[in-house]
Every structure is written in C-alpha cells, then in structure tokens.
Design a protein around this nucleic acid. Structure first.
Lengths: 402, 402
DNA sequence: AAAACTTTGTTTAGCCACTAGACTAACAAA
DNA sequence: TTTGTTAGTCTAGTGGCTAAACAAAGTTTT
C-alpha cells in the first residue's frame, strides 16, 4: 500500500476502487453479466448492481440484449462502451509526425501522417495543430467527446511534461503541454517516445500479458521504456531509460553525448547507416542512404549488408543482456524503426542473449519485436489519456449547487 | 492504484489504511498528540482517537505524560513503542556471519559476529542456529516477542525465498526459509544481500529521505538493490539487480559467469585484489592478500596501491553512470566492503560521473557511501520482518469463536 | 401444462468506519 | 474568578458495503 501514502481513506475511496474493479472486469471480459462480475470480482451482487448503474449513467458501459440462460433467468450482458469518447495520440519523430484518433479501447479510428525534413519548431507546431484539428474534426459524436491529447517526442521530458531536450529536433526547454492546453482546453500529456511505446505495447501490443516489460526503442538513437509492476517507471525526475547512453565499451568511440562507447553507437539505426556508408556500397552512390535501402540490399542477398545487420543484432543483444541483468523482466520488446529489420537482427540477437544471459534470468523471459510497428508511441500516448480519463471517471462527482 | 488489483475494497481496508497512516505519523513524529495527528494526517479527531485506542491495545504505541500546553488543555503525547517486539537480522557473507537483534525502530540491541573460512553448508547452518538462538535468548521481555527472522545471503533468491544459487558459498537450490520456519515457527524472510542492504539504507541509513535509491553492494562481487517508488523492486522472478554482470567492455576478459567484460571484473574487491597480486607487492609476500592490507599500504602513501584504488573508483563510476542512465535515481549508495575504501575511491568515481553522466541526470542526484557500513544487510532483513509485522498488525483481528 | 428448480438482478435491513459538531476536560491569560 | 483556547470523547448522521429476502424470468421435471 505504498501508492496512496498521504491521502486518507474513506468510503469515497472504497467506491472508487470497486467501481474501477468492476469496469476493468467488464472491459476485459465483455460481454459479461452483473452476476458474473459479482462472483469473479468478489463483490456482493447488490454492490455490483449499484456500481453498474453508475457506469451506465456515465455511458461508460451499455447493456446488450439478454445472454444465454444456464438454467435460470437470462442475464443482461454488459459491454464496455468503447465509443463513449475518443483520444488523440501523436507521435513526433525526427522527420515525421503521426497522429491517430482512437476509441477508448485503443482501436484506431482515423490516422494521419506527415513527413518532413529539417523543419523549425514553429513549422512542426503548425503541422501538429493541423493534424490535431483534423483528427478532432473527424471524431464521431460521443457522450464524452475528445477526452485528451497525448504527444510522444524523441527527447527528454520531465515529470511536469516539459520537454527539456530533443536533440534531433533541436528543441530545448519547450512547454508543449502548456501550448496545447491553452489551445485545446483538453487534458494534455507529453511523454518520451520510448515510454509511450512501452505503454502502447503493454496496453495493446505484444506486452498485454506481462507486468514487467522493457521496451527498447531502437531508431536513430536508442531509448528505453520501463514497465515495472505493470506501470510505467519514470525515475525520480522522469529521465529513466536513457540506456542508449549506457557504456558497453569503456574506451570506445566518443558519442555526441560526450561519453564514450555508448550502446547506441553500436546498435542503433544511425550506427547501421554509418557503418554502411563506410563500406561504399556501389549501388547507392550519390543518394543519401536510408534503412530501407539496406533492407532491400539484404533481401537481394548482399552478404556484406546482411553481416552488417547481424553485427547490429549482436550489439543489440549485448545491451539487452545488461537490461535483463538489471531488471529481470518478463518481456523485452524491440520497437521503433530497427524493429522493421527484425528478420536480419533476430538470430544474432537471440544467440547473444541465450549464450550470455545468466541461466536463471532466461526462465519465463520472452524477447520479441513490436506488434504495433510504427504505431506503438502514438497508441501509447493515446492510452495515457484514456487511462487518465477513466481514472477520473471513477471518482465521485461533487454536485455543484448553484 | 495498481497495487491492490484483485482485492476488493471495503471498510476493513479503510480502517487498515488509516491506522497505518496514524502509526506512521506517530513513528516519524513522536512524541505527538492525537490532535496533531488528526490535523496533519487529515483525519477527524474522533477517528484518530479510535485508531489510537486500537494501537494502544496492541501495545504498538504508548502514552507518555502530558506535553506542553499551547494555551489550552495539555496534550497527551503518543510515542511509538519500539520495544514492543524484536527482530532478528542475519547477514551471511562468504567468510562471516553477522547477526543483530533490533527493536522495531531498527536500533541494534545485540549483535554477534562469527568469521570462518570454507565451511560446508551444514557447518554454516549450525553457526546460524547458534547465532539465532543466542540473539533470541537475549531479547528482553516484550508484548510481541520475536516478530521474525530475516536472512541476507550473497546469492540469487527467488520470489518464494528459495536460494537458487550462492556461488561463493557453493550453495544451490536451498530452501533455508523452510528450514528456519520449521525450527523456529516464526515468519522468515530470505533475501539477496544487496536487496537487503538497499532496504537497510533506505529505512535507517543514508537513504532515509529518498524514494528512488540504487544501492551498489561492492564486495567480492557486485550486486545491486533497487528501491523504486519507495519500495524494493525485485523484477519478475526476484532476480533484478544482477548488475555485477553488466557488460562494460564488449570483448573484455571472461568472467566466471561465462560472459565477457562484466562490471565486477573491473570494480569489485576481487578485481582490486587480482590487480594487486599481479603487482607483486614486496611487503606482503607469502601471506594471502586482503583488502585491509591494501588500505594500510594506501595509508602509508604507496602510489601504486593508491592508483589501484583510483582505477577501481573510475570503473565503479562507469557502472554507476549506466545505473543513472537506466534508473534516474535520487541517490546512489555504495556499500559493502569496498565502501570502506571510500577515501581512495571517491575522487575518481565522482569525476567519472560528473564528467560523463548526462547533465539533466545530475540534478537532485546524490552519490554517497553506506552509512550503516557492515550492518546494511543485517538491518535491512530485520527491517523487512518489522515492516511485515506492522503491516499484519494493521489488519483486523478476526475473532475465532470456539 | 403445472410444478419445481435455477439463475439474475433488485431491494431491504443492518453494519461499520467515517465526518461534523457538540460536549467535557484541562489548561493559560486577563 | 472569568474568559478563551486547546485536547480529547461522545453522539448523530452518512455512505457504501454485506447478507439475505424477494421478484423476475428462465429451464427442467413430472
């Protein structure tokens, strides 16, 4: 009982907690009857009835027709009203902006992607506004409307949602949260892209069944999102998971962070591209090299390129070993752009891990690649808003007498 | 509200939670009056009175004489009854066994240390029994008597308290918990030595004010205990914090774990001793080298030995950088035997961190050495028992009608 | 088809821990 | 002594819970 610490306990808390239990049961097991909820959650039938009525009034659930009888009165089936509201999730990348509109179950109802290069903050902000406007306008009528906006950014976000640094975008000390709140008057969440991705995979992707997940976002750089005990761990100030700058070679080459031998110098997309450029691949002279080019070459069977991927997979494995030793996770999920090269990375990566991770760490451990591919982050931030919305909905409404 | 998940909420929970709040307030602010508790915790005076009566009945607190009046009736001061019970904490090391008897505030009431070398499990078990017997016998009369036994071991302990592996003791798949429970019929906790140390420092030592603490236990090997969000994080199976086997040099020398370039090959006591042995220090020929010898030489100003310590401090810094990047802690505490060399390690260690850790990670970050020195682990396991005992005491007594 | 049984969901009575506020106790200051 | 203040208890009322009775709506048995 660590979490509540300073709040005192009273029957509001009890009701809030039980309502939340009932709603979760309905979300995860719909359609389900009141009787079944009562039995499975362990609450009295009457209590469940009353809580269900509250939820019905809030339009968070609805009754469908009667279900099958099992020898008695037919149950009224309850379902989560996933269309009770919509959430906007935005993933800002170095050269793209991906926005999704999701329902309360994280189903994508609409999406929009813009790609760009070297835009200023103001220009990206404009794209961001356009995307959000478009998505909000496209949302169907619903009882709760748009319940929040979430934005994932490739940078350092502190506990108050301020972007301290996004090196690849050249942003610094930027309070995007305030900007969006003032413009849209909606709850806004700004989150690091890796944290968002981790949460996305946990809620809707490969991590649905695990409580301890480490999400490795391997793109131009490497960031890591930590799901510990089922919830995102952000550290003391919100800066956890900067594992791209973990030293894996004490006197290795210098990283742009000033340190030496950082993991992302060996296992990121940038590392791959840099190594490939040095090889002077003849077929690509002139054009700026991209990951997709390398993938195409690998598909054609180019042994040099394939061994490049294998090398990167091996280095990914080195860092993942360190992660396993640190966190003893149930699941390690590799996401972001490097996940697309899954086919060429997988073998050396898993070899490295299975040969070198301590044996007891390997029990109950799954290593896999992202299920949501490019949507992890956008879905993750969307999920944050949904979680917040539902959590607030569980609380008592204080009637404002005029 | 992640923690309770499946338990339903009712007034028992409310009372349990509030009682716990009241007790914590009294523990941390005694002497304190009922009125002050009510105001500071935010509960009604009547509620506090009732809960305080429960706690008095349980002998967990007691009333002292009246306090100073501030212009009205003099308050009755409440104090935590730290002598309401006693806890046994044992730290089993590679060549020593340290036992403490503490009161409920972690004050050491008695202690016993045995040193040995190359004992079999049976022999160590005998020493363990003797120590526990001695400590229990020495405990003063108290309402609750001995409330539990905790044991810290240098090895891998799973979530059920089974010791899977303690390489330096040559133990494997050992259920010490069961052995002790059967013999003493008391609650028993077996915990990894680094986890225990972390908890010890958090409760009674350098980490009292932090919620995010990483405790680096640097002895023969290196283990790490993680305090995240104020409580111990053990990972999916209990194996978190095996950071001694984090790779910091991809193609470094081979470790006994089979991996290469592990941190503990560079920054542990063993690493220091191995390096020193290679130097053929003339003054110590014949005798087996110990850390204390090196410390003595350093005190005498031996430049070779001093630079050995400095090198180790630097390597410690490398790993601690990785830790900072992973966890964004408030505090890193270095404990176990290497902490005794604090004087010689500190400079290169802090230099490494301040030069290389990312700037934003360095805000609000303290790096320090253990305050409890050799007692961290023993006090930590003792604290686990106390915590458990108090937590159970908060729960309702179910009257068993005969 | 009627009777008996089952299961669902609502209602009622009672319980328990909380709150607000009245009350008593014990002190300080005027 | 009177007045005011603070500490702690007591009482009435509230809200959410449980258990159990009840009503509703089925299925199964006779």
């Amino acid at each position: 009982m660590n979490i509540r610490e300073n709040r005192t306990w009273n029957h509001h808390v009890v009701k809030e907690g039980n309502k939340s239990l009932v709603l979760k049961k309905i979300i995860n097991h719909s359609p389900i009857s009141r009787a079944a909820v009562a039995q499975e959650v362990g609450l009295n039938k009457g209590t469940v009835s009353s809580l269900v009525n509250d939820l019905l009034e809030d339009h968070l659930i609805y009754e469908s027709g009667p279900g099958k009888s099992s020898g008695g009165r037919r149950p009224v089936m309850l379902l989560f009203n996933e269309k009770a509201g919509y959430s906007v999730g935005i993933d800002i990348g170095v050269n793209y902006l991906l926005g999704v509109l999701t329902d309360l179950n994280g189903n994508i109802c609409n999406e929009k992607e813009v790609t760009f290069k070297n835009l200023s903050y103001e220009e990206i902000e404009l794209q961001l506004f356009h995307t959000i406007d478009y998505l909000i306008a496209s949302a169907p009528e619903s009882p709760h409307g748009i319940i929040g906006i979430g934005v994932g950014v490739p940078g350092i976000v502190d506990n108050h949602g301020e972007i301290l640094l996004a090196p690849n975008l050249k942003w610094k000390n930027l309070n995007l949260k305030l900007v969006l709140e003032n413009k849209y008057h909606l709850p806004v969440i700004i989150e690091n892209e890796a944290n968002a991705g981790a949460y996305g995979e946990k809620k809707f992707g490969a991590g649905k069944d695990s409580k301890h997940i480490i999400y490795v976002s391997a793109g131009i750089g490497i960031g890591v999102g930590l799901i510990l005990n089922g919830s995102l761990y952000k550290g003391s100030n919100g800066f956890s998971g900067e594992l791209g700058h973990m030293t894996i070679q004490v006197n290795g080459p210098t990283c742009r962070c000033g340190n030496k031998g950082c993991w992302e110098l060996y296992a990121s997309e940038q590392a791959l591209l840099t190594a490939a450029e040095k090889m002077n691949l003849p077929s690509l002279a002139g054009k700026e090299l991209e990951l997709s080019d390398l993938l195409a070459l690998a598909e054609q069977g180019d042994p040099k390129v394939i061994s490049l991927f294998e090398q990167a997979g091996d280095y990914l494995g080195v860092g993942i070993n360190n992660i396993i030793n640190s966190f003893n996770p149930q699941q390690v999920i590799i996401g972001n752009r490097m996940a697309s090269s899954y086919k060429w990375l997988n073998k050396t990566l898993t070899d490295r891990v299975s040969n070198q991770a301590l044996w007891f760490q390997q029990n109950d451990l799954t290593i896999c690649f992202s299920e949501l591919s490019t949507f992890s982050s956008a879905l993750g931030v969307s999920a944050f808003s949904i979680e917040n919305f539902l959590s607030v909905s569980m609380q008592q409404k204080v009637s404002l007498n005029v």
